[in-house]
Design a protein around this nucleic acid. Structure first.
Lengths: 226, 226
DNA sequence: ATGTGTGAACTATTTCACAGCC
DNA sequence: GGCTGTGAAATAGTTCACACAT
């Protein structure tokens, strides 16, 4: 149910505009999905609509929040305080949805001790302490690619079972641990792919030529900073 | 084909380690997918493997890059230079994959003129000029939610047909324009959902109670800063 | 022997279309 | 009359399993 957060966002926007009731058609349009899909999704949570009328916005917001577990607070730690870690630390959308940042951690001595968004950056050595003391249940990894697996192993060993990974690597974790991955450059690559298709007409690429040359060296060298 | 960038990443990592050849099994493991799926995906690009041997890393890197359109340069503009815009401007993974940042733009006079990652922030008024002058084909929107649709309309009017949106809104665009959306808080919400399921046993939530109270006011108020 | 490429089986997801309730 | 909830149909995506090339 990866679409529930999108519905929730659309609903809170309606709520702010003082709308009391929506039809599946309207809400689906706001969320950018098909209305039948929306109804099926919502029907999985229970029968919260009224036939002939629609859904009561307030009530649906509450039910989806409950389903998503947003009626309780989740404690997160952000590991890696580069540009991205800073952006995450200052991101208002976390606090407002019940996500509390318990700590910012980094290995770089020059960054440790700095104050970012009202929090003092801690040394990565304190990782296990912070997880235990604050009851961290979600770790956000925003380190360089090379450090990510090591950090991941440590947070998992310390009992964290949900990881949001911004480093451009596939993390391996034991059974029972959830990892979600956000990769900024992958999103751009997907856009480039579609853009190319448009430019090249309906068929896109030229078909593979027999003598298509394998390049001597690749220009696609990895630079890894999440 | 949203998985091609992941394969490409795994392949370049192998390439750096000097590996000349991979089997579908090995590459699938590195990319975190099933090997049959990987073979099927690759077979869509053409027959680039050798039976009994595997895939030549160098050659496959080239073919996937070509398919994704990474053998040409793409010009991007980043609109909104808050924390996230800064992180994106400094993100090394763009330049290394053929994405060239042509401009950083913001509406805030206090930010305009600042130098970020070697670029001077331009005023949003210059948006159309910059798009035309540099041939921008991808716009990255990292503005607050309220400004996103307006910015989107302007870039589309200026001829951009691919948008990467970090603002927490569903953008509406004309036919033929691609939008991809990255929403940091949605990823966390999905993790929270799974985390809750683990904690609550296989059945997760308590079943809906008859007298389940609709809340008087919602605590889920939108704060919008992408 | 080994490992790709792929038809066929299976599973999941999306959409249709309409009965049933307001 | 209008709109939800949902079986059934259609579509998409995944995995199996093996023929066939090297």
């Amino acid at each position: 149910m990866a679409r529930l957060p999108v519905y929730l966002r659309a609903l809170t926007a309606l709520q702010e505009r003082g709308v009391a009731t929506v039809s599946s058609e309207e809400l689906a349009a706001a969320a950018g999905v098909n209305s039948a899909k929306l109804r099926k999704d919502l029907s999985h949570l229970g029968s919260y609509g009224t036939r002939g009328v629609g859904y009561e916005v307030e009530y649906l917001v509450y039910q989806i929040s409950r389903e998503l577990g947003l009626t309780q607070d989740w404690v997160v730690a952000i590991i890696g305080v580069g540009n991205l870690g800073r952006a995450l630390a200052g991101y208002g959308g976390f606090a407002s949805r019940g996500f509390r940042v318990a700590g910012l951690l980094d290995a770089d001595e020059a960054i440790v001790g700095q104050e970012i968004s009202g929090m003092v950056v801690e040394h990565i050595d304190r990782l296990e302490d912070i997880i235990a003391d604050h009851g961290v249940s979600i770790a956000v990894i925003a380190t360089p690619a090379g450090a990510a697996q090591g950090v991941c192993d440590r947070v998992v060993a310390a009992g964290v079972t949900s990881v949001l990974n911004f480093a451009p690597v596939v993390l391996s974790v034991p059974e029972g641990v959830d990892v979600r991955k956000v990769d900024l450059s992958i999103e751009l690559q997907i856009l480039a792919f579609h853009e190319q298709r448009k430019a090249g007409g309906p068929d896109g690429l030229a078909p593979l030529q027999e003598g298509d040359p394998p390049p001597g060296t690749s220009q696609y060298v990895e630079t890894v900073e999440a």
